[in-house]
Amino acid sequence: MIDFTLIFRILVFPGFTFILLLTLFCDWVERKIEARIQNRVGPLVAGPAGILQPLADLIKLLTKEDIEPRDAKKTVFKIAPILAFAFMVFALCFVPIDGASVLSTTGFNGDLIVILTFSTIASFLLFLSGWASCNPYGTISSARVLTQFLGYDIPLFLFALTPAFIAGTLSIFKIASIQTIPFIILAPWAFVLFIITMQAELEKDPFDVPDAESELVGGLETEFTGAKLAFLHLTRDVQIVFGSALVVELFLGGPYGPVFFGLPAFWYTLWFVLKLLAVVVLTEYITTLFARLRIDQVLSANWKIVLPASILSLMLTVALVTWVYPLVVL
């Protein structure tokens, strides 16, 4: 019996299917918000209010002809996109969605580090897929992916340590459940900087240099068609959901919130999705309101501003946790 529950949890809820649908839904929300800010309507005819648009895109891509360029490094070209997608979904499986994570109900100490590592591996696989396509645009784009995520991973880890320090644990499950006062109030500076770093890590405007359309055509996706392209798109979208989920878990109190009646799992999921959407809306606002920076500007912003800020933030947190918070809140 327990086995069936686990299988259900992995495959349907809150596992693969739920994550996939959530990803498609977030994609739709993003496109709608972008369109509304730009005075447009956005997807409209596929399903009610165009909500099935991402699904239609996905199905169409899956059923298209799959072309392998003559020059591509075949094995990597085939495997990398789907592997990247798998790693991202796997990383999300450790995030508590309905009050417990998919794989184990309570998580383990250090799973924060594990999921951040998984997302780094996925970024690396994206780089590999661009490189394996042996296309000049893809090569340059993947070089940019590599430079950017190597640079921004360090501050991202450091910012993620701020809530971990306040909570006194490296388990994402415990960090989320310990927040009687959300950490956004205790460490607002870290929240703001984490969002900005996340924006860079997810390659969204103003940091979307790897897929700068006006220079690099389709970026690292240039050569991909059909199912492989579908998985690359999905990886990007899951990355966005993952980043937003991380913000929710680390700063907004995770899935926890008031339970009014019935199953707590239902309410937890609801709070999780609502908080997630709030973060997605926020990041999409930032995306639409800025122009793209140049790669050297992106990098110097990292080494000159974000990285020192992350170290300062960590020092400030340690000081606060040691001397101030015990007196005030905890």
Partner: peptide, 22 residues
């Protein structure tokens, strides 16, 4: 693509690469 006509309503997207286009 722009607000007055907005073809994204119909799911139309202008793609940069021939590999992505229908």
């Amino acid at each position: 693509l722009t607000p007055k006509y907005d073809v994204e309503r119909f799911g139309v997207k202008l793609e940069p690469s021939p590999r992505h286009a229908d």
